[in-house]
């Protein structure tokens, strides 16, 4: 069933939800939030768009295939462990840059890891949603 109201609303809600998911991702280190929740919110944004406009539109909007997101996410998670080894600390010790960035705050390996989790969760959730939707067709 196609609904004009939902379709129009989802077009405006999608960027808002995506921005909110980035916000959740970035505040996650010390406060409630993080890659997992952020990824879920982002997936929910796309899911809403898919409900309103159909799976083809949603896949077109996403551009990347979900499995790419999964592999990039896992790759970032692996990459984030390398600096700790390079500076001679224990595996997966958090390494931070000293400078503060506006908006983002401090940048370090946990953030890279969290972005990895974000992409992984987004990829897996969308893979599941799209597979189920295609099954339905």
């Amino acid at each position: 069933m196609f609904s004009v109201i939902l379709s129009t609303a989802s077009r405006y809600l999608l960027p808002l939800l995506l921005i909110f998911s980035f916000f959740l991702l970035l505040r996650g280190h010390n406060e409630p939030g993080g890659g997992f929740v952020g990824g879920l919110v982002a997936a929910a944004a796309y899911a809403l768009y898919f409900i309103a406009n159909g799976v083809d539109e949603a896949e077109k909007l996403l551009k990347a295939e979900p499995i790419r997101l999964i592999s990039v996410g896992l790759f970032l998670a692996v990459i984030s462990t390398i600096p700790s080894i390079l500076i001679g600390k224990n595996f997966m010790t958090g390494v931070w840059l000293d400078t503060n960035f506006p908006l983002i705050g401090k940048i370090g390996t946990p953030l890279v890891f969290d972005v990895g989790v974000y992409l992984l969760v987004l990829g897996i959730a969308l893979k599941i949603i799209f597979s189920l939707a295609e099954e339905d067709r």
Binding site: S71, L74, F75, T81, F91
Partner: peptide, 18 residues
């Protein structure tokens, strides 16, 4: 840590060329 992390690296490599 390598016996745990190496399979992950190989799996991710394979996913890139899925």
């Amino acid at each position: 840590i390598l016996p745990i992390i190496l399979p992950l690296i190989f799996a991710v490599t394979m996913l890139f060329f899925w």
